[in-house]
Amino acid sequence: MTDQPLLQATAVHKSFGDVEVLKGIDLTVRQGQVVSLIGASGSGKTTFLRCVNLLEEHDGGEILLDGDPIGYRDIGGKRRRLSEAKVSAQRARIGMVFQQFNLFPHLTAGDNVMLGLTKVLGKSKAEAREIAGHWLGRVGLAERRDHYPYQLSGGQQQRVAIARAVAMQPRLLLFDEVTSALDPELVAEVLGVMHALADAGMTMLLVSHEMLFVRDVSHHVVFLDKGRIAQQGRPADVFDNPENERLRSFLGRFHGLFGRASAAS
């Protein structure tokens, strides 16, 4: 891990109509760091994650990736959105894995991984095939490369989706509740792959309800409450010494998992 801030969010605001979902989020992710966002549903964690790669447009504040403002630029004091081409190029530097896997249904596992490599990064078919093979192997699905998504289990689809994101060699990987749609027995295989990526030094920002995993894998944990950061810190601090009342009550829902938290609620 270095001290270089890879992602720096400052006062990020986002509203859907009259509802302000993000009320000024300040967050720093350093290279090689795993940062987890936790909080009740509706707290804004997924929205923040989606703002980072512009699947949602933030209304105010700034998100910098490697010092480069994402999505918007100040031109003559006015906030202007970047062109679609520039936004696409920025998104290519950020990988995202979704709750519902979102594999392209008309492409095989291998082609799902290869699409971005050939069309976005401009790699040759042969090179892309090799990279796809490598990453499908890393997620334990080398022999499934010619299978279509519908022929794979949920856990396998999610591992392909992770391979698709990581094969692009993004600077940052976003995980949006990637185990929420999986049957319980398939969760472990996906978390295992994520753990391996974290161990390999991948910078990751994740939203998850798998509290044990979050505690185990994260360098930094951020608790969001109603669009604001209510508490953040090292996993031990957040889980074992929850100062914030709302955090205590949130952790209390995960009965028995955390000593003081469950006792306090």
């Binding site: 699947l55 696409s88 979704f98 392209f104 008309h106 692009m168």
Partner: peptide
């Protein structure tokens, strides 16, 4: 919508999203 978002997330440009994801899926 999820396919379009996945296409955006890997950095495909608007016309590439149409050509490689939206149209093939729509055809089916």
């Amino acid at each position: 919508k999820q396919y379009v978002e996945a296409a955006k997330a890997i950095g495909l440009r608007p016309w590439q999203r149409q050509a490689y994801v939206i149209l093939p899926v729509m055809f089916r």
